[in-house]
Structure formats: C-alpha cells, structure tokens
Design a protein around this nucleic acid. Sequence first.
DNA 1: AATATAAACTAAATCGATTTAGATGTCAAG
DNA 2: CTTGACATCTAAATCGATTTAGTTTATATT
Lengths: 339, 339
Amino acid sequence: MPVTLKDIARRVGKSVPTVSRALGNHADISPETRAEVQRVARELGYEPSAIALNLRRRRAGAVSLISPAHAQVRFSDPFFAEFLNGVVEAVAEQHIDLLVTAGAEEDVEALYLKQIRSRRTDGFIVVRTQRNDNRIHLLREQGVPFVAYGRTEENNDFCFVDEDGTAGIALVVDHLASLGHRRIAYISEPLFLTKAYHRMLGFRQGLERNHLSFHPELFVETHFRQRSGRQAAAYLLDLPQPPTAIVAANDLLALGAMHEAQSRGLTVGRDVSITGFDDIPLTEYVHPALTTVHLPAQEFGRRVAQMLLKLIDKAPLEERQFIYRPSLVVRGSSGPAPI
Amino acid sequence: MPVTLKDIARRVGKSVPTVSRALGNHADISPETRAEVQRVARELGYEPSAIALNLRRRRAGAVSLISPAHAQVRFSDPFFAEFLNGVVEAVAEQHIDLLVTAGAEEDVEALYLKQIRSRRTDGFIVVRTQRNDNRIHLLREQGVPFVAYGRTEENNDFCFVDEDGTAGIALVVDHLASLGHRRIAYISEPLFLTKAYHRMLGFRQGLERNHLSFHPELFVETHFRQRSGRQAAAYLLDLPQPPTAIVAANDLLALGAMHEAQSRGLTVGRDVSITGFDDIPLTEYVHPALTTVHLPAQEFGRRVAQMLLKLIDKAPLEERQFIYRPSLVVRGSSGPAPI
DNA sequence: AATATAAACTAAATCGATTTAGATGTCAAG
DNA sequence: CTTGACATCTAAATCGATTTAGTTTATATT
C-alpha cells in the first residue's frame, strides 16, 4: 500500500492540508510541526502520487514520441536510436516522463488526437516529418506544444531542429566530382519525407554546380533499409553503363549497396565509390569504412527535447528553429574514379 | 480547453453521474438520454481524462522501462532497439503507455523506488540483468509486477524471458571446431551481466566437448561496443601465436574485430574466422556476412511486454518463464582453419 | 479590559472521473 | 386509494493531492 498524505496526517495527529503545507515549507506551519511531519514522511518513504498531482495541476508530466507508422524500421534505425538516446536523457534530467508509442498504420492522427484529448501528454516530439505533414497540421490546429525533427514544405512557423540535407549531399557530390567521377548515381529514400526531398535537391544541386548532367536512369527512389540499398545497387550495377559512384541518401542504404557491390567482387573505393549520410556509429567499423555526412544524432534528440520542455513551461526560447550544417567525413569507401 | 463530463452534462441538462453512466452503457439510463449524451459526447470530441481515470482506478495505465546506467549504448545497441520495437508494439496494442527512462549512473534503484512510490507505473520491464541484480531484489521486495529479459544467478523465481546463451555459444564452438580450428579466442562482454556469463560458459563448454583446451591468453573480457571489439582483436592478433578463430560475445564486438582484421589486410573467413551473437539486422549486410547466432529480438520484446501486461491484470500466465534455444546462422565470416 | 494582530491550524472546494446509496415519479396490483 | 415495484435520475463520497478562505488561540496594543 502506498503512503499518502492521509497516512502521515493520521500519524502526526494533524490535518491533511497541514501535512501538505508542512512538506511544501509554507510559512504558516510551526517549526515543530514541520520537522515532525517531514520526519514521519521520510520514515514512511512518502512520495506524492504523480497522478493526483497531475490531476490537480492539469498537466500530464510527460511528453510523447509517436513512432510513425510508415517507418518499418522504428527504433532499429540506428540514427533514430541515437536520437532517442538524446531525447531520453534530456527529458530524464527534467524529471519528465517520456511516452513512447507506435502509430498504427491506419491513422496516426487519431492516435495523436486521442492522446491530446485524454490529456496523457503535455507535448509531442514529431519525427520523420513529411513534406505535407498532417500531424503538424493537427497539432497546430489543436494548439498543443510540439517540436519537430525536420521541416515541412509549407508553413514552417513552428519549432524544429533540422539538418541542411541539401548542403550535405551537395558536399558529397563535390567530393566525388573532385575525384573525377562523372556518372554518379543516387539512391533516395521515399520522397514524401522532407529530409529525403532536401537531400535529393542537394544531389541535383551538386551535379549542377559541378557541371554534370542528371541521368534519370541513375536515380532510384526506394525505402529505408539495407535491403533496398542492395536492390537499388543491383539495378544500378546492371545498367549497360553503370555509375562509377553511388550516393546513398543514408548510411543503411549505403551499406546495402556496398554489400551488393562486394558480393559482385567489386572493391568499394576503387572499382566503385559509395557514400552514405548520417554517420551512424557503424560506418566507421565496416570495411572499407564509409564516406558519409556527419550528423550529431544524439545532440539533435537533446535539442528537440529541451526545446519542447521550454515550450511547455512557456519559458523563453533563444531559438525556435535550428538548422545544422553537416560536414563531410571522408573514409575508404570513396576513391578516384576508375578510368 | 479539453472537454469534460461536466461540459456534456451542462449541454444535455443532466447531472454528471448520469452522463458518466450513459457513456458507460449502464442499465439505469433511458434510451433517449443515453443516445443524446452519446451524441453530444461525440460532437464535442469527448475523451475521458486519462489522469482522472487513473487516479480513480489507482492504476498508472503505464509500464516502465528504465535503460540501465552501465549501458553506454542504451538504445543504439541494435539488439536492444529491436527488442524495444517489440515492446512498444505489444504495449500499444493494449492501449497502455510505455514510459522510457534513463537511469542515472549513481543509483538506479532510487529511480525505481521513486517511480514505484509516486505510482507512475504499473510494472517494470527489466533489461540487461546482472548476476546479482539489485533491481530485481528491490522489485521483489516491493511486490511490484515486473518481467525481466534475462535471469540472475540466484533465486530465479520471477517472470522472465531469456535465451540459452550457453547452448548458443557452444554451437559456435562446435561449428569452428568442425572447421578445424584449434586456437579459438573469445571476446566477452562484462561478466557481471548474466547473459555475458552464460555465453562465456558456453565457450568453455564448447571447448571441452571438442577436446580443446582453454588458453587464458585467448580470453578477453571487455565492453559492449565495436571499439572494444576492435581493441580486443588487435590484442589477439598481436599475440605470438594468434588464434585462427575469434568468437565474439555479440555482433557489435564481432564487427569491431572484423574491422581490425580487415585493416591488417587479413581476409575474414579465410585467414581468420570471426563469429558474433544476436543476429542483428546488419550482420547480413557486412562483407563478408557474419556467422552468428540468431535471436528473435523483437519477439523477445513482445513476449516480455505481454507477460508483464498479464501479470498486472492478474490474468493467468501459461508460462512464467521462457528460455529460447538459439540456432546457428553460418555465413561468410567463418571458414576452414588455415594450415 | 477591549481590541487588533499574528501564528498555527483546519474545513471546504477543486481537479475529472466513477460508484454507492438514495430520491423522485409512474404505473400496476391489491 | 394505498402500496409496491420499477425506471430514471441525482447527491454525496472517493481517488490524493493543493489552495482559498476561514477559525481558533495566544499575544501585543491602546
């Protein structure tokens, strides 16, 4: 049986409000009573009921992160896992709970609405934003605090943390072009995701500024995982005129592509160059190590969470929006174009 | 402003309890009133306050998963990420919230105690059990429902899901022995973890039943991550008489070891065999693909969560304990011993 | 001595639901 | 015409906290 104020009140022979005020160090309690109450509370291991408190305060004491339905990967995406690490730590520091939920395929918005109406949560962390994102429409409409990781393509007047994916991929193309590559392929994530779209733009921008033309047959839109990367690479390497370099929109796709190239006996970094994006912890430990674009995933998680907590507390926010300019990490998977 | 029973009551001109009973389909409400109340509720988008309900029911409507402090990896451990996927899905199906928290380094037990006393949670999922696990002592003492992933070394009279790591690693040793390997090294996770300990036992058992002797210099106890695997492999390969096969206690360690071997110009699977454990999604996509032991991480997560939910509901449990017998997955990273 | 003031406490209301016990009105049976 | 049964509803209590508005008692002031 958990200990309540009533239990303490009974023990010290005082009323419940007195006990409450004694524990809260209010002025209208005599030093003796206060000491006695606090002693008994400690002795009984009293801890206020989070639920009762939340009812009174009309807060949930929790923030919510709903993993989107379309992400078959959910937490197994290493980038997202790192991001989650950051969120969990930032939230734990403030003694707020993190509610983690999986969105059902049908309609994630119903889930958001339910959480809002049942007042389970004080705010949301929105991940994997889409170019036209109904979740964001909804949250804005409902006036619920939220911070997104990523932007949308429309009205971006909300709090978010994002990366400049366009600049990131353009750096990759620069790098490959400087190595003499002229047939560069691109493996894209689904383009309804804002970040996939931005990265794709970076690819086109990179081609352009290096005076390379865009070959539609060298552009593949696929899913998130390694399997897709492998399949896409198989298609590309089977082309009559295969690319000498493959830019993948994320590291998992790149690893899948590398696997395909290697199982064809190609040496990655020599016969074909392959690059990724995100710099997940693994990239350093595959062979050859992956040339990629670094993102501080955990820091993104921290930032998003901290912004959200401030937003909820209506504390002043130094910055409502943050766009990280990523940097290139050159490793062994990219090398000079073969002649 | 969220909609409450009071709002509905005002609208239909009835008392709050009547509204409550109408929504709950109780018998003592006239069909007309019931219909009217339900109509208005729908119209206003009424959803009961989760907090008020929980206060009344004296339940939290949530279960808790606290990532242990010693796990520097937390969610970035791909096995754990998969496990979490399973948990999240099983829990979401039952409309229960999952509270994810990070344990501070100092004392995780204090965190558990706090969550128990403040009645934030109805039960716990305990991961990365230790041979002598204070969290389990505590939960048992407090009589709080919990399910562990993994056992302890003492009294195991509680609900858990586990793998038979001993059998798993022994399979690996059998496999390597059958390929002619006689100098087999082992890279272990920290041995205070039950699962690390079990796997280590499997290594010794495997050696024994293949009539191989245990060489202390071929046994390295280290941490979880790739970096440790790499360092351990460096040490092993620098030995005057290096091993021909390296058994790593998990896939990340194995990938680290592979990286070290490859950066020395060795061909993994020919010059040296390397094996892992867990069969994380990545193992299939490195080159050569990793020989490992398969564990259905996501299913483990589901099982643990489902057990916990039943335990909380005091529903009958067909089985309180489940030990999975893992199977070997042979891929390219293991091959015949060089002569 | 009467009154104002301060100290230390408590009753009652509140948050948003549910449940228990009781109230009211209608109708049929005696 | 009274009584009992039934249908339908509401008042009050409860979960565990906090806050507001008093209340009581002792002390200081005039």
